[in-house]
Design a protein around this nucleic acid. Sequence first.
DNA 1: TACGTGTGTGAAAAATTATTAACTTTGAAT
DNA 2: ATTCAAAGTTAATAATTTTTCACACACGTA
Lengths: 236, 236
Amino acid sequence: MENKVLIVDDEKEMRNLLSVCLKPFGYVIDEAQTGFEALEKIIGEKYDLLLLDIMMPTVDGFEVLRNVREILDKDVPIILLTALGDTDRIVKGLQLGADDYIVKPFEPRELLARIQSVMRRAQKSGVLEEGKFSLHQLLFEENKLKVSYREQTLPLTKKEYKLLLRLAKNSGRVYSREQLVQLEWEDYYEGDARTIDTHIKNIREKLKAVGFTKQIIETVWGIGYQMLEEDSIKDE
Amino acid sequence: MENKVLIVDDEKEMRNLLSVCLKPFGYVIDEAQTGFEALEKIIGEKYDLLLLDIMMPTVDGFEVLRNVREILDKDVPIILLTALGDTDRIVKGLQLGADDYIVKPFEPRELLARIQSVMRRAQKSGVLEEGKFSLHQLLFEENKLKVSYREQTLPLTKKEYKLLLRLAKNSGRVYSREQLVQLEWEDYYEGDARTIDTHIKNIREKLKAVGFTKQIIETVWGIGYQMLEEDSIKDE
DNA sequence: TACGTGTGTGAAAAATTATTAACTTTGAAT
DNA sequence: ATTCAAAGTTAATAATTTTTCACACACGTA
């Protein structure tokens, strides 16, 4: 597989140096001398990595970074080229969404290591989309411990979230209060299982608060609670 | 695909009735008259579903249920056959790990619906194994919001968990305090980003408390924090 | 319809978690 | 070696979450 790298730096020497370091490892190099040129190239082509000098005349690295992240290519890995000790710019760059930075002058070995690391991560992050699912129009994002309905996030507490997640992941299954308490609470729980009632109540309330009115958490009289299955026409 | 069902009931009539209900839908039926016989059969063969009468002489349904769940087949779907209004036994049964129950006398239509529902769930639950990963010998179980090291669960609070999860899922990436605060906290956060320091400290402490001594959360001086990548030999 | 339980609900109490602030230690740069 | 700023640490305070309790209400049964 061929990785295309765009080197953005106003100094020709630096571009050459980077280029020489990378070519032996099979990277396909493209260069831009100004921020403006870089943006043009990125519009025209899909790169696998950007090596971006911060300090350049007119359109500087931040400008490029911002444009790329906001419009052009939200996900391309970006490594900043910075001057030694310039922590202010590094922090700013990382905050703008750069993936990593490297200080000039750099060890070729380190450059390679960082590039590989960043690109490895970029590949993983595609898979990172897992853990999302939706049920009854509710969107569950497990990575963020977030449940939302039409863009509105439910402000769930930890226990509420766990409870709702379990019910959702096992929709259709009936749980007794005792089971829920044992399953979700660390270790063994001595107290009153009716604390579940209160949590259920609060969850239902928070659902209503975002405009979600369907009663998806059902009370099973004498037994406990269950979340309705997606397609269920209430049985019994 | 052929689904094998074991019907466990001491009354021949009931076994026949169930059998007649299910056969037309392609289920392959096997029967056991006693709890003991049921256990023998389950040892000898893999079933896709158990229909289990609770009240039987000698070895009752609970006994069978317990044995199956603890030793023989932890995951086979089990539907209890119970008498009307016998909520005590139903609750106990569900607590012992039954998936559902049906009261005698039952509607064939309902029986079928419940069977299908339970089996659909059983298939899903295989996929439910997602969201587990490990890093540096730490086991992350996103479904349970749990992180553990050698079977010991870290008693993390919600924010600690989120923080650790994010760092872990993006190991190698450096985050500034500001980024972490924005990413993990709902809405916008006005306060001091150094609250992150305290959280990091507490996480590190909890890691030590379970005997995990490697320093995987690194401080990047002047910038923020990062989790080491799995295989990284500390660069720079 | 009346009864005995099981559940919904609101608010107080208890417990836990998150943040802040002050102080100590560490690291980088001169 | 000295200095300054950043990070570690601790403890107090603030905020939130969780549990409990009491009472109202609903459900199934006689």
